[in-house]
Design a binder for these strands. Structure first.
Length: 680
DNA sequence: TTTCCCAAGCTTTTT
DNA sequence: GCTTGGGAAA
């Protein structure tokens, strides 16, 4: 038995620091109090636009300057983008000294923990991460194996099953509670659901798979179970900073507690009025529970908004009063002079797009850079019509949110091959690549997977050919390709190329109709791979940070102008723009039709609109089409969003669109109009 | 057992 | 408009 010697925690703030940054000059009083706070637990309740990021950045700088080693600071954020932005800004302030701060999302940080201590967590260190699509596929495999796919009783589909399982984990509820609460229609098949859930759990651990929830849960369990690991990890977390605390779930709150369990220095920043991830299991009450969770916590507030004009804040303040839950928050601005936000009722979607495009062009002529303007919407598809119109007018844009390149079937096929090479036990990836072979269906695939699993020494060797000649040849081709990828002789770039050559005939067979378009995606994918040194980090990055399928590759973009931003409201969190357009403000879209029955869900939709509105600094336009097209039913009269329809005109000013009189010009055929001279 | 074809059902937000 | 599931032919 080794002897133990306990090192005392050295107080970090004893030394009166020789600071190079003038914090008092950079920050207001409230911000300064937060940025330069001492140790212990702090909750900073920061309204929208009150300089949350700035405070975080200077907090990091302050800690580093006052003697905390950068690698002992942990900055947890909601997205990778947010983490890298903050660290870049902090590094710029302190000539690169903040580079070594540990930063990233909860998921990424937990992943690195688990890789380092995989054995102790009961996993192989090359375990694979499943995104939600993969996870649903695994659930499907389990369900089929359990014979629950047979009809008779209605049984939830794979995505629903997985949603149930995931909700239970994230909210720390029992599965039966989740089903009773949120899926009452499936109460009578609860037993089957539970069998699938159990099977899913076993399947993952047998094949070295983790889904997103496992990253959090397994990391939490590891730290709780293995006191020595917990001590090592938490010792390195002299200061824990958490951004967007209102969107953490119970697991994440617990993790923060564990990370801070040695030093007890936590600063959580958040805004209860901006909680928009309840659907994913976020627990907005975490903010209110913070003082209970962390003894002696001090609560601070940031209320002075530097972002938006008072007119925009008036609308935001008004909106938040519509919530069924009270938020005691009134933001005030130092920019009193502004225009009223506008409400635009367009006759139809096409006209709404014309309005947005024309206003954008006009503002650009007034020297507002394109990338200081954003169009925000509830769901990814809400911008399709606008994207067409922007393309037609050669206005460059990027889109955040919506469909991800790495979720396209053909890209997932390629990724699955890489996953098998990386982790030959990954049965879900095996299944995916095997059923691509002609003559192989689910049954044969599962037989082959069994057969492979029995000989885990040399995973891709076929000595004898115990299989039907129907597919033996293609199976041998697959295995020899996998062997090459695994050999270690090829760079990642060459591996992808080999893979593409192998996959091309499959692509043509499977998608004979539109394979050229998909081929382009594959090339794009291969280009992205070029930024990575090897397979493992590439796969990891794909799993944690799926590639946004942006319209950036619009070939026709002549200008090198930074593009206009299109974004789902969720993806726009934390960003700010000179001008914001909120389009498709229709009842059933914003608020979403799925939330109409439930007041808590409705409140979240309202907060979503609140987030959208508070992104704007100077100009805000909320618009909706009166005549809306719906996929099946055709045209119908839309109801404007309940949140904007009754707002007083002194807060949200109606804007009437008028068509310019056409001056002696015959009407042009649609699609051939001259965009620059298009009248309203 | 696979594959093809047709009918049915559902469709959000993200790590 | 697309994916998913079921049924039947090969």
């Amino acid at each position: 038995m080794a002897r133990r010697f306990v090192l005392k925690t050295e107080p970090a703030h004893d030394r009166p620091p020789g600071l190079t940054i003038d914090y008092a000059g950079e920050l207001n009083e409230q911000q300064l109090a937060a940025a330069a706070a001492g140790g212990g637990a702090h909750l900073v309740v920061a309204g929208a636009g009150t300089g949350k990021t700035r405070t975080h950045v200077l907090r990091v700088a302050y800690l580093v300057e006052s003697g905390t080693p950068p690698e002992q600071i942990l900055l947890l954020t909601f997205t990778r983008r947010a983490a890298s932005e903050m660290l870049t800004r902090a590094s710029a302030l302190l000539d690169g000294r903040c580079q070594r701060v540990q930063g990233g999302t909860f998921h990424a940080f937990c992943l690195s923990l688990l890789r380092r201590h995989a054995e102790r967590a009961g996993y192989p260190s090359n375990f694979t991460i499943l995104d939600s699509g993969d996870a649903a596929d695994v659930v499907d495999l389990v369900r089929n194996a359990a014979g629950l796919s047979r009809s008779g009783k209605r049984f939830p589909r794979k995505a629903t099953l997985y949603a149930m399982i995931s909700t239970a984990v994230n909210r720390q509820m029992r599965l039966d509670e989740v089903v009773e609460d949120r899926y009452p229609q499936f109460v009578d098949v609860l037993e089957g659901v539970e069998r699938v859930a159990t099977g899913y759990r076993e399947y993952k651990s047998r094949h070295g798979l983790m889904d997103y929830d496992d990253l959090l849960m397994q990391a939490g369990m590891l730290l709780e179970r293995e006191a020595d690991i917990c001590r090592v990890v938490a010792s390195r977390c002299r200061h824990v900073l958490v951004d967007e605390y209102q969107d953490t779930n119970l697991l994440q709150a617990r993790l923060v507690e564990l990370f801070a369990s040695v030093h007890g220095n936590v600063m959580a920043v958040g805004d209860d009025a901006q909680s928009i991830y309840r659907f994913r299991g976020a627990n907005p009450d975490n903010i209110f529970d913070f003082p209970d969770r962390f003894e002696g916590a001090r609560v601070m507030r940031l209320e002075h908004n530097y972002r938006s004009s008072q007119q925009i804040l008036d609308l935001a303040n008004y909106l938040i009063t519509l919530a069924s839950r009270r938020y005691d928050k009134r933001l005030f601005s130092s920019r009193p002079d502004g225009e009223l936000p506008g409400l635009v009722a367009a006759p139809d979607e096409q006209t709404e797009c014309r309005f947005v495009c024309q206003m954008i062009s006009q503002l650009r002529e007034e020297e507002v850079p394109l990338n200081r303007m954003a169009v925000l919407f509830r769901s990814g598809f809400n911008s399709y019509a606008l994207e067409l119109e922007l393309n037609r007018r050669n206005i460059p844009f990027v889109k955040y949110g919506g469909v991800k390149l790495s979720e396209a079937a053909h890209i997932k096929d390629l990724i699955a091959h890489l996953r098998v090479v990386e982790n030959p036990k990954d049965a879900s990836a095996w299944n995916r690549i095997l059923v691509l072979l002609e003559g192989v269906g689910p049954k044969t695939a599962s037989d082959i997977i069994e057969w492979v699993a029995e000989r885990d020494r040399e995973p891709f060797a076929i000595e004898e050919k115990p299989f039907s000649p129907r597919y033996a040849e293609s199976l041998i081709a697959l295995f020899s390709m996998l062997r090459r990828l695994r050999s270690g002789e090829l760079t990642l770039q060459d591996q992808i190329e080999t893979l593409q050559v192998y996959y091309e005939p499959i692509l043509k067979r499977k998608y004979y109709e539109d394979y050229p378009r998909r081929q382009q995606d594959l090339d794009h994918f291969s280009g992205i791979a070029a930024q990575f040194r090897s397979r493992a980090p590439f796969l990891e990055s794909l799993a944690l940070d799926p590639i946004e399928l942006t319209a950036l590759d619009a070939e026709g973009a002549v200008e090198d102008e930074p593009p206009l931003v299109l974004s789902t409201i969720h993806s726009a969190k934390g960003l700010e723009f000179d001008t914001v357009f909120v389009i498709q403000a229709i009842d059933g879209i914003l608020p979403s039709a799925y939330s109409l029955r439930d007041t808590e869900a409705l409140d979240e939709e309202l907060r979503l609109l609140y987030v959208a509105v508070t992104r704007a600094e100077r100009n805000l336009f909320v618009s909706y089409p009166i005549l809306q097209h719906r996929r099946f039913e055709g045209e119908y009269f839309a109801k404007p969003s309940r949140y904007v329809v009754d707002v007083d005109e002194s807060i949200l000013e109606p804007i009437r669109l008028e068509e310019a009189p056409i001056e002696g010009r015959p009407e042009l055929a649609p699609g051939r109009q001259d965009p620059a001279r298009l009248p309203f």
